[in-house]
């Protein structure tokens, strides 16, 4: 069960712990300097977007795309695209037909 925040400003303030959590979720390595600059920037951006709270929109349907059309369905025929060689070509570390990553199983 999600706990939805109310719009008190305390919940909207980003502190060091939040920055650490967000950088973890974003898979971006964090350090003291990064955290301090992000606290400043993210709070100023969040303060800016708080204007939206002036609006009463409880009955408004969200708009995720302006495209108003039926999705196109292609014919179910085989096409030679995304061949293994092409896909692997740009990989920084590869071995034969595989991408190589740091060891993930002990």
């Amino acid at each position: 069960m999600l706990i939805y925040p109310n719009f008190s400003s305390s919940l909207m303030t980003i502190n060091k712990e939040t920055v650490k959590k967000i950088s973890k979720l974003s898979r971006i390595a964090s350090n003291e300097e990064f955290e301090n600059s992000m606290i400043k920037d993210l709070n100023s951006i969040l303060k800016f977007v708080e204007q939206l709270n002036e609006l009463n929109i409880s009955n408004t349907e969200p708009l995720s795309s302006v495209v108003d059309q039926k999705l196109y369905q292609r014919d179910d025929v085989e096409k030679k695209i995304n061949e293994k060689k092409d896909i692997l070509q740009n990989s920084p570390v590869k071995n034969e037909n595989y991408f190589v990553v740091p060891k993930i199983i002990e």
Binding site: L52, L55, I57, T60, E61, L63, S64, V66
Partner: peptide, 10 residues
């Protein structure tokens, strides 16, 4: 919320 406001703008 932003998606809802996007609807109002459109």
């Amino acid at each position: 919320k932003a998606q809802q406001v996007r609807r109002l703008i459109k």
